[in-house]
Design a protein around this nucleic acid. Structure first.
Lengths: 224, 224, 224, 224
DNA sequence: GATGAATGAGTGTTCATTCAT
DNA sequence: CATGAATGAACACTCATTCAT
């Protein structure tokens, strides 16, 4: 899994709400904490992708992140926090992508949607395994944190809905229910990480992506 | 979750894995073993849906299935086997549905596809939680067993592909790539169990289902 | 520490209230649980006396009690429970002694008090180290359990108070405040286990006991 | 707990243990070390009284004493040293009290004993919780240090013995065995911190003290 | 076949202590 | 002298699995 490092500086911007761990930690230097949290998230995500959250032991997480056990626990309170950190890091990228890509500056609805699809598919290819992880392990997340994740996710869908509404207003898109369509589109875009094992037997990634794009435009341009 | 019991007789067809649960102990009555395996799968699935596989303990599985610990281990070898049994039971229903519904007896492609969609959505609604479980926990399955599961899954997709090809031959469906379309359709049909938390805020199940049906027909009837 | 086994059959009589652990345990055979709890208490008490509660590890407790770790945890929920079991076992002996010794059948107050003192000193000598343990580690006990322990302890003191009142009524004892006197007497009787390191430099146990007896009679027979 | 600061100057007399806290680091200013040791003892004692020695972490000790972790370890070598410092500080007050109170300047044995009792009870009331701590946690002390503590304690008892002998010589006290009596007296005087939970249900502190005084005089004035 | 007590490797977590800055 | 991040041995506890009855 390549990590899209060009996104990193922006990652934790909107997420003062994700403070780890909930209660005070040992370490006092706040900048350091942020740095280490990122280090944990990056290392642990790779491990979780490989072994799954439950089968990864704290000792393995330490090795994967380059921490000693005690030191790791200076930055988290429980193992669950590690998963939260992983989600915090990647789900931010995941759900706040469009704002960061300048998609909303594009006027032409067709071009805007095409951009939104392509950029998303690029990101999805980069984060393939993380996306699978985010699907399979999100139900492990603490209730409160899961709520935030879902909120982010629906925020992402709203972004697509906005693009669709823009196209509808300009009489380019023919769909009647942009909310449902946005859900379908966002869902469809993840087909490759989730069900790719079958598609990949016949197509390479870019063939899949091209077809997805066509399907989505088809969906958006034809009367329902 | 209602379990569609009319499917049960066919369920355990192809799984050598469970034929001799314990090397040393010869359980003669094979019919009994099958009965007990079903009992385990039914009880355990409910538990796994509630708690997840990893957080469910063997003791809880015993309680949920009505076995004592020692007795349960007469029918399985490891905890993983329980998950396999659950998959074995439900994934058979899941992937061999269409054959059992008489869908292939229908001549008219439109009618056939409509039937295939509706029957599937019905089943998906019944098995909502199991489907989520099958997505999230399939990666826990032993390698060999996972292969069987995926084979079943692709068999299901092939069924849809066959329906599409039938419609293409009869000049009803306009699609060029029935393999890809089948994958997309099967994937789309599961949107509710997997991403329903967002859709359900606006629609009830049947509204979702109606929209899905329309989308799929749209997809199939329009030139790509 | 010799364990006064002749008391054992009576030990758990009055203490249905002490159920370990608070919530259900794995083991179903209740008689077995009682037997094992006793085994735990006897083994652990020796260890705690030697090392103290906090320095004793669960593995040492296992070795001292003859359990494997997992099996020990079939009978307790936490390490604290082991201490509670120890207290439960010995504090019962400790605080319900007099009823079991026939002291209350004696009519003559002098004889009754003498008996109460001697029997107690005998017990105290047997339980020397346990008494020290009960003093030093009682503050570790869970709040609720400590309350029961203190109630038992005050019940013991009440027994002495009753003996004193009997002597006052029969004009043998001259004391005005039997409650305070009973507290002092019970406290004094434990001087050897608690502060014996100094006394033992000059006296043997029976010399200490003889002197204590004299002091208490002095206290009880003279006008305040 | 008020700390009787007027005793402090004499406190750290006889404890080579803390003269060079760290082999490698030569802290030149010995006066500073003494000051810091006192700071540690005062802060830590409050914490130990509240949580017990074992449950108090070094981090909590730091917070309670106003040190940073690294700095604290400039003045001690192990956590046990903190307990030793606490004992060193308070046990000195505890066992060298009488010399500092001018008790030995009093000629009249009755007056002298009364003074010795009252001053002691005053101190005991001030140090209530510390006394309980000194009882419960003394067995944690390193062997060598415990010996010093016990020596101090027996020194205290000797002081009372001296007072008693003085009274015997002057034909005021009737006791035959001043050593035993001194042990009993010193032990009795601590009844309130150790067993007060029962007494305090009926009496306030001064009522307890008055009764104790009477009992001790009774003990000392009557033929055994 | 059924029972449930026993096993012990392995887990997440704590915390006294060290040491670079 | 002071700081606090880093270390890792040790801990309490869990739970899949076995096996005597």
């Amino acid at each position: 899994m390549r990590i899209p490092t060009h996104h990193m500086p922006k990652m934790q911007r909107n997420h003062a709400k994700f403070e780890f761990p909930k209660n005070g930690i040992q370490i006092k230097n706040l900048e350091l904490v942020r740095k280490k949290h990122l280090q944990i998230a990056l290392g642990a995500s790779k491990l979780f992708v490989k072994k799954g959250y439950h089968k990864a032991t704290m000792r393995e997480i330490c090795k994967a992140t380059g921490f000693t056990i005690g030191n790791l626990y200076d930055y988290i309170k429980t193992k669950d926090d590690v998963l939260c950190l992983v989600f915090d890091t990647f789900h931010s990228i995941w759900s706040h992508q469009l704002e960061n890509e300048g998609v909303f500056d594009i006027e032409d609805p067709m071009e805007q949607l095409r951009m939104a699809i392509r950029k998303r598919l690029e990101l999805i290819n980069q984060l393939r395994d993380m996306i699978l992880l985010m699907y399979t392990d999100s139900k492990i997340l603490p209730r409160e944190f899961l709520k935030t994740v879902l909120k982010n996710e629906s925020y992402l869908i709203e972004n697509y809905e906005r693009i669709l509404r823009n196209g509808i207003e300009k009489n380019v898109f023919k769909i009647k229910d942009p909310f449902f369509a946005a859900n379908v589109i966002v869902y469809l875009l993840s087909i490759e990480p989730l069900r790719g094992w079958n598609l990949r037997r016949k197509y390479n990634i870019s063939q899949i992506n091209r077809r997805l794009e066509k399907y989505i435009f088809n969906l958006v341009l034809n009367r329902e």
